[in-house]
Amino acid sequence: MANQDSSDMVQPIPNQPQPIIIQNNHSGSILWRILAAIGWLGLFFCVPIILGMMISSASYYNTTEGVSEKYFAGSKTASDKIAVINVTGVIMEGQSYVRKQIDLVREDKDVKAVVVRVDSPGGTVTGSDYILHHLKKLKEERDIPLVVSMGAMATSGGYYVAMAVEDEEDSIYAEPTTTTGSIGVIIPHYNVSGLMEEYHIEDDSIMSHPRKQMLTMTREMPEEHREILQEYVNQAFTRFKDIVKEGRPAFEKDPEKLDVLATGEIFTANQALANGLVDKIGFIEEAIDRAAELADIDSKKTRVVTYEEPVALFDLGLAQNQALSFDKMLEMSAPKAYYMSSYLPPLVSSFPFGSR
């Protein structure tokens, strides 16, 4: 027994399943972990970038940024709206605030009528015409009625903007204390050549042609230059009167009556009513009621909204610091025609409290 082979002592159990040997491939596991980590890192960095691009794109195409809707009157729960668009202050080029209001109204299908609240002495010819154009375009595209409510002042370019009502009856309301009219055009010019002569100061500018300095303050204006500028003003004035005829069809039939009124003279609300420049004496509430009537909706069951542009303290300080900056002084000195009731139109554009 002692010499018996050890292989005879241990016999395999028949039909016993062989053990399964599992080998861990450590190199493959590490590779997958690295790839997964890279993927998560890529996602971590890409998501903020994509979100940033989306926000940037939305900001780029957002034409109403900074302007928000605010409840003004009427029903707070109604879906139908009457929008009050504000045209306030001196009208200059690039009327972003007014344009943003118009864009909000255009996109809001719940708005059934518009009241344009004008409280402005006017401004540049181009700025006034820009607002008029977009108000008329809004009225046409949305096919909604438009009524004007005049505040303390709606003169010159402010009156020009009011002509967006076109031939709609009973559509221009002036408050009892409104000042309006001032239909006319002005290119400001000041002559300080006498003062320069007294202090021995000479304008020694080099120019391509003498007409390049037609509106210079440092020299007496030649008659030839005056005639050229007068023709320019006359054409702008003719357009002003044509626009008034669109908003006041009675003057189309009687243009001589408009010529009597279009002298730059300002009028009280009662004078304006008597001369056909406005339709009614009334406050903004009456204008809202008229807009609701034209839209065939109940003003008491309609939400009246207006639009606000927030002004930060930083913005006010920045505007004050820029009030007399060099670029503003250059802007003031540029020759411009104005639909404006003022004797200092080139100066008001530099003040921080001008039109927004």
Rank of each mutant, 00 (worst) to 15 (best):
M1E: 05
Q16N: 04
I21E: 11
I21M: 06
I21Q: 12
H26S: 09
L31Y: 04
W40R: 07
L41C: 06
P48T: 09
I50E: 04
S59P: 00
Y60C: 00
E69N: 02
E69I: 03
K70W: 01
A78N: 02
V84G: 02
E93T: 06
Q95K: 05
R99H: 11
K100R: 15
Q101C: 06
Q101P: 06
L104W: 06
R106I: 01
R117V: 02
R117Q: 14
G122N: 01
V125N: 00
T126R: 07
H134A: 01
K137F: 01
L146M: 13
L146Y: 03
G151E: 07
M153V: 08
G157P: 04
Y160A: 03
Y160K: 03
V161D: 01
A164I: 02
S171E: 07
I172L: 08
A174K: 04
T178A: 07
T180F: 07
V185S: 08
I186H: 12
I186K: 13
N191Y: 08
G194D: 15
G194L: 05
G194T: 12
E197F: 00
E198H: 07
H200Q: 13
E202Q: 12
D204P: 00
D204C: 00
H209R: 14
R219N: 15
P222I: 10
P222K: 11
E227A: 11
E227T: 12
I228G: 00
R239T: 15
E246I: 15
A250R: 08
E252Q: 15
P255W: 06
E256C: 00
K257V: 05
L258H: 03
D259T: 11
L261I: 14
A262R: 06
E265P: 01
N270S: 14
A272I: 05
A272E: 05
G276F: 05
F283L: 14
R290Y: 07
L294S: 12
Y307H: 04
E308L: 12
V311W: 02
N321A: 13
S325R: 07
F326Q: 10
S333I: 08
K336L: 13
L344R: 09
L347I: 15
S349F: 04
P352I: 12
